[in-house]
């Protein structure tokens, strides 16, 4: 049965999305993306080096006709900065998609949800397809949806922490209430974390550090690909209820 993720009419071929930061070079980035099977890759917006124009371009390695480029506003701490980066990203890129980050604090990189909500409202009105990186707060997820976000991206744990899905119950509540897709951003540390997110019913998972920081990033990208598929299939298959006591699998009838 077809199980495609569709957001605002855009079809996604993979429920694993990957970031492109922290790789040793563009060759490695390209290999990892290939292994992950992701069709969405996040990128950041930064100044062109105008004195050394020979430096390679990321988009020479990630073909924008093959992958969906999702620019982020990483590093933005104010609404104004997030708007500025979003508008530049739209002009530099090929779509209206933006992964909106308004960071509240350097140590935790937790989102400033008040700023995030304001920026989401403004950008949605400007026609952006806003994917806000938010806390695992069901009320805020709802507010972002009402403000025009096309999906919500709650964190599982702080960015780059690898702590996994710290509050699966909140994610579950977000999923129950949300009319837009829910994509876990940040916090995944290893394959089982991705599976847990998908088993909860999340629509996709976005991973960067857990792959880029692994000893073998290509192998971890492959593991994540399978973990996301397994989690999604298990979710759709419908797991058994947890019980305190055993229920025998083999019939008692016919025993000696």
């Amino acid at each position: 049965m077809e199980d495609k993720l569709i957001i605002s009419g855009i079809e996604f071929n993979s429920r694993l999305w990957v970031g492109t930061g922290k790789y040793k070079d563009f060759e490695e980035t390209a290999k990892v993306i290939e292994a992950s099977g992701a069709d969405v890759v996040t990128v950041a917006v930064r100044r062109v080096n105008i004195t050394d124009r020979k430096s390679a371009n990321l988009l020479d390695y990630i073909d924008p006709s093959k992958y969906k480029i999702l620019p982020n506003t990483a590093g933005c701490y104010t609404v104004e900065d997030a708007l500025r980066y979003s508008r530049l990203a739209r002009e530099a890129g090929v779509s209206d998609m933006v992964k909106l980050e308004v960071i509240g604090d350097e140590k935790t990189l937790f989102p400033d949800v008040i700023g995030l909500l304001k920026a989401t409202e403004i950008l949605a009105k400007e026609g952006f397809l806003v994917f806000p990186y938010t806390n695992d707060d069901p009320i805020m997820a709802k507010r972002l949806e009402d403000a025009g976000a096309v999906a919500v991206m709650p964190l599982g744990a702080p960015i780059g922490s690898g702590l996994g899905i710290r509050n699966p119950y909140n994610i579950k509540i977000i999923l129950e209430a949300s009319k837009v897709p829910v994509i876990v951003d940040a916090g995944v540390g290893t394959a089982s974390d991705s599976t847990i997110a998908m088993e909860l019913g999340c629509d996709a998972v976005l991973i960067n550090t857990a792959i880029a920081g692994a000893k073998d990033p290509v192998a971890m990208a492959t593991a994540m690909k399978h973990a996301v598929i397994a989690g999604r299939m298990a979710y759709r298959a419908g797991r058994i209820q947890k019980r305190l006591y055993a229920t025998a699998s083999s019939p008692l009838e016919g025993m000696l």
Partner: peptide
């Protein structure tokens, strides 16, 4: 500006 690996 242009796109770079993100987001560090």
């Amino acid at each position: 500006v242009y796109f770079v690996g993100g987001g560090d």
